[in-house]
Design a protein around this nucleic acid. Structure first.
Length: 422
DNA sequence: TCTGGGGTCCTAGGACCC
DNA sequence: TCTGGGGTCCTAGGACCC
């Protein structure tokens, strides 16, 4: 049996851990740039606040209902996530951290003393005691069914946050009540296609002929169908493979028209990519930049630039990657547009100890790697960006908006909460 | 004024090989 | 009227996830 443990309203719950006055109040978390709603507390969901809505459009409404909004604080969420996962890892040696707020646990071969339901209750209580984060637990024989069980545990109060699908009857009963669009792997397009073919529940779906599923939804759909029938097709991923792409992109806090400031932003994103590569001990051989105007402003001139550069010798060197990104910017930049977003994507990623040399390469790589080592060592010890390349700039005029940021309660000394004994 | 960011996998089609 | 068969690799686009 697999368990899927998912944190309830994770970002909202994180904000509450160190600020319990928020308990019982409607809160929402905003995306970067305070743009959209990306997480809601139950109270906010009950008010009918939608996921993904633009904040500026509903700001007044939210104020009227005393909804409290937060900028996203990934430092806090990332740290609490780590603590939750560390606690979960105590329950089984086989754990797949699937996202910032959920993990699959394998209980195959366990002697289940007290039954799965008790184990689930224990997981829930332990995570809450250790971290203050509420979670839901779903048990089932496949990952897709475990996701489904978790959903039932979360939506249906009578389950108290734990749902175990350990018999065929229970599985069939749940398939009947789950809308097909709520199944893991069914997005908007698949849902529409299936609805057009009179498939509305997961139960309808498993009764479709396999040939039809394969030709209309490819092997992805077929896998999903088998998983729902209790046949394992998706295994636990216990090791994390090196990433295939690394992307750093942001919308700017305001429109940019000045190429040099865009260059600064681009340099910063290129530098982040290089840092992520070095952290993974990998190098990239393809560097791509994007530069966009605001796609929502149809009355303004639109421009979506995209430039890819292939390198002769793969690299993870900050200076080199910045240079290529700026060169690409030179090639695509056009005057007369109001730019809203840019980014750097690196791909063609291989381990750094397997670099294919090029006989015409004339860069002194050992010197560069020394510079990078110093950069990383100092920044690790004294804080990010204590030492950086000049083209990154200092003013950060492109920086994103985050006006409602909470403190980094668990990672920054100055932000530790103080408790005063009365 | 203001609408996120970062990933994965699969398929079809084109270019190329023998 | 008729023009082989079997591969690989790459890319773009489309679907999905959180």
């Amino acid at each position: 049996m697999y368990a899927l443990i998912d944190c309830n309203n994770f970002y909202a719950s994180c904000e509450r851990v160190f600020n319990p006055s928020l308990n019982g109040k409607p809160i929402v978390i905003l995306s970067n740039n305070d743009g959209c709603i990306i997480a809601r507390s139950n109270e906010a969901k009950e008010l009918g606040i939608d996921m993904g809505g633009a904040y500026y459009m509903i700001e007044k409404d939210l104020k009227k209902h005393n909804v409290i909004a937060f900028s996203s604080n990934y430092t806090l969420y990332g740290d609490l996530s780590q603590r939750v996962m560390n606690t979960l890892a105590e329950f089984t040696p086989e754990i797949e951290v699937y996202s910032i707020d959920e993990s699959f646990l394998n209980f195959e071969g366990f002697e289940l003393i007290g039954g799965l339901n008790n184990i689930g209750k224990n997981i829930k209580a332990t995570v809450f005691r250790n971290t203050g984060i509420p979670v839901s637990v779903g048990f089932a024989p496949t990952k897709t069914l475990a996701k489904l069980a978790n959903r039932i545990a979360k939506k249906n109060k009578s389950y108290n946050g734990v749902c175990v699908l350990d018999s065929n009857e229970k599985i069939m009963d749940s398939l009947r009540i789950i809308k097909i669009g709520d199944v893991w792997g069914v997005g908007r397009q698949f849902e529409a296609l299936l609805n057009n073919n009179n498939v509305y529940t997961a139960y309808d779906f498993i009764n479709l002929p396999e040939d039809w599923v394969k030709s209309n939804l490819s092997v992805v759909g077929l896998r999903m169908q088998k998983e729902l029938k209790g046949i394992k097709c998706i295994s636990l991923e216990l090791t994390t493979d090196a990433k295939k792409n690394i992307c750093t992109s942001r919308s700017f806090g305001r429109y940019l028209t000045d190429k040099s400031i865009i260059g600064e932003a681009m340099s910063n994103f290129a530098s982040r990519c290089a840092l992520k590569l070095r952290k993974d001990k990998t190098v990239c051989s393809v560097i791509q930049i994007i530069l966009y105007t605001n796609r929502f402003k149809l009355d303004q001139p639109q421009y979506f630039a995209n430039k890819t550069i292939h390198l002769d010798v793969p690299t993870n060197n900050t200076i080199e990657i910045i240079n290529y990104a700026l060169k690409a910017l030179d090639l695509v930049y056009r005057d007369g547009y109001r730019y809203m977003k840019c980014g750097v994507i690196v791909s063609g990623i291989v381990p750094e100890n397997r670099i294919q040399q090029n006989m015409f390469d004339n860069i002194d790589r050992s010197k560069h790697s020394k510079v990078n080592n110093i950069l990383d060592t100092l920044n690790n010890r004294y804080g990010a960006d204590v030492l950086k390349v000049g083209s990154l700039g200092v003013a950060k005029q492109w920086n994103l908006k985050a006006e409602k940021l909470s403190k980094c309660y668990s990672t920054r000394w100055n932000d530790l909460i103080t408790i005063i004994a009365m």
